[in-house]
Amino acid sequence: MFEVTRYEASRRVRGTVVLSVLVALLGLLMVAFFPSVRTSSAALEEYIANLPPAFREAFGIDSFGTIEGFLATELYQFGWVILLGVYFGYRAGSLVAGDVEDRGIDLWLATPLSRARLVIERYLSLVPTMVAVNVVTPLVVLPAIAVVGEPVPVERVLAVHLLSVPYFLTTAALGLLLSVLVSRESTASRGALGLVFGLFLVESLASVGDVGWLGAVSPTRYFDPTGVLLRGAYDPAGAVILLGAAVGGVALAVALFRRADIT
């Protein structure tokens, strides 16, 4: 059981290690940079107040002069919501389309492995990478925060990482859907990248306009690092919605792939 997941995950070990280290170093850099930000926080807050509301909303800019607000914007809103969200959608876009394009899928389908199991296990092969980046980063960031002498509730930092997993699962499910709909790997991956980022923009613009309901289709509506870090505003209901969306997306991808005519 889960042989495909183990095989695919083992092929990504090097990439997972590199990604985890790079993201952790980004977090370390942000923490190290904060003392210089704190000394000019008054000027920064004035500058931020003059930014367009849509821009402030998109990047979760709030209380930039505190370590919580700074990390929420520079590390989690940008690094987690945008970069990693797009990354997992992009990677998922190649899970099926890549093998369909180069005909490697014929070897898989010649085995007793069902199409449903193939799709599900390939999707699950991204989970170790999601876990790795969310384990390594706080192990680096939390001690660094303590060194610079900025008190931050540890449970809030850990909550951000925990709540990001359903978000990543959802963006990966979007990429998986495109991967079974499109037979070209590059098209599926780039399409997933554009879709995830486009949904981020939809939520950002809808939240400052009169069409707030439109943002409900975006995964970013249900994952708010700024609210967690600054106010301890945990959203378990949002996490459940994201998990439901991920499960639904994978189920739809399985149904579509079962009916796909691969010739």
Results as ranks from 00 to 15, higher is better:
6 R>Y: 12
9 A>F: 04
11 R>G: 11
15 G>I: 02
16 T>W: 06
16 T>S: 12
17 V>Q: 08
24 A>M: 07
25 L>D: 00
25 L>F: 07
29 L>A: 12
31 V>P: 01
32 A>F: 10
33 F>A: 14
37 V>W: 02
38 R>V: 08
41 S>R: 14
41 S>E: 11
42 A>T: 13
45 E>N: 08
47 Y>T: 09
47 Y>A: 12
50 N>P: 03
53 P>Y: 04
54 A>Y: 07
55 F>I: 15
55 F>K: 08
56 R>S: 07
56 R>E: 08
58 A>Y: 00
59 F>V: 05
60 G>T: 02
64 F>D: 01
67 I>L: 11
69 G>F: 00
70 F>N: 11
71 L>S: 03
77 Q>R: 13
78 F>N: 12
78 F>R: 11
83 L>F: 15
87 Y>T: 15
88 F>E: 04
92 A>I: 03
93 G>F: 07
95 L>K: 09
96 V>R: 08
99 D>I: 06
99 D>T: 14
101 E>H: 03
101 E>W: 02
105 I>A: 02
105 I>N: 05
105 I>H: 01
109 L>I: 11
109 L>R: 13
112 P>A: 05
115 R>D: 09
118 L>S: 08
120 I>Q: 10
122 R>C: 08
122 R>N: 13
122 R>A: 09
125 S>E: 10
127 V>A: 13
128 P>K: 05
133 V>M: 05
134 N>M: 03
134 N>A: 06
138 P>R: 07
138 P>K: 11
140 V>Q: 01
141 V>W: 03
144 A>L: 08
144 A>K: 00
145 I>C: 02
147 V>T: 10
148 V>P: 00
149 G>K: 00
150 E>R: 01
150 E>P: 01
152 V>F: 09
152 V>I: 14
158 L>A: 11
158 L>G: 07
159 A>L: 14
164 S>P: 06
168 F>C: 02
170 T>S: 12
170 T>H: 02
171 T>M: 04
171 T>Q: 04
172 A>L: 03
176 L>V: 04
177 L>M: 10
180 V>K: 03
185 E>K: 13
188 A>F: 00
190 R>I: 12
197 F>M: 12
198 G>I: 13
199 L>P: 00
200 F>I: 05
200 F>W: 14
200 F>V: 11
200 F>R: 07
201 L>T: 14
203 E>C: 02
205 L>T: 08
207 S>L: 09
208 V>G: 01
210 D>P: 05
211 V>A: 15
211 V>Y: 15
212 G>Q: 13
213 W>Y: 14
215 G>K: 01
216 A>N: 10
217 V>D: 06
218 S>R: 01
220 T>H: 09
222 Y>S: 07
224 D>G: 05
229 L>I: 05
232 G>D: 10
232 G>A: 12
233 A>S: 14
236 P>W: 14
238 G>C: 05
242 L>R: 01
243 L>G: 06
243 L>Q: 06
245 A>N: 03
247 V>K: 05
254 V>H: 06
254 V>F: 04
254 V>K: 01
258 R>Q: 15
261 D>Q: 15
